[in-house]
């Protein structure tokens, strides 16, 4: 097995996730199956091939730097789990 349960937990932490300790073994097995399958790609010769990151390349479109009022502050805050009418509120940081 390439990746053990501890490594899975470490990567999950990078993604701000926790894997249920009871399931981390099964998760690691599935993870390894999928990675083994992905390793097939090493059989393809890609020497000198420019990567293709999307079908529409050079999609950096410029627009005029004009402001527009697309939405109100109330709208932007309307789905916030916690807000004070002006800002998003999060647990104390400092």
């Amino acid at each position: 097995m390439k990746i053990g349960p501890e490594e899975v937990a470490r990567i999950a932490a990078l993604a701000r996730l926790e894997i249920d300790p009871a399931k981390v073994g099964q998760f690691a097995e599935q993870f390894n199956d999928i990675l083994d399958y992905m390793d097939k790609l090493s059989e393809v010769d890609t020497e000198g091939v420019e990567p293709m990151y999307g079908p529409v390349e050079h999609a950096t479109v410029l627009r005029c730097d004009r402001t527009a009022r697309d939405c109100s502050r109330d709208e932007v805050l309307s789905n916030a789990p916690e807000n004070d009418g002006r800002f998003f509120i999060v647990p104390r940081i400092v």
Binding site: I19, I34, L35, V44, P51, M52
Partner: peptide
Amino acid sequence: VIGTYVLSAGYYDAYYRKAAQVRR
């Protein structure tokens, strides 16, 4: 988690970049 792994330091070229080349 798998997506985080294939983008993480040391694996980016082997997985993500390689896949983008195969895509081309």
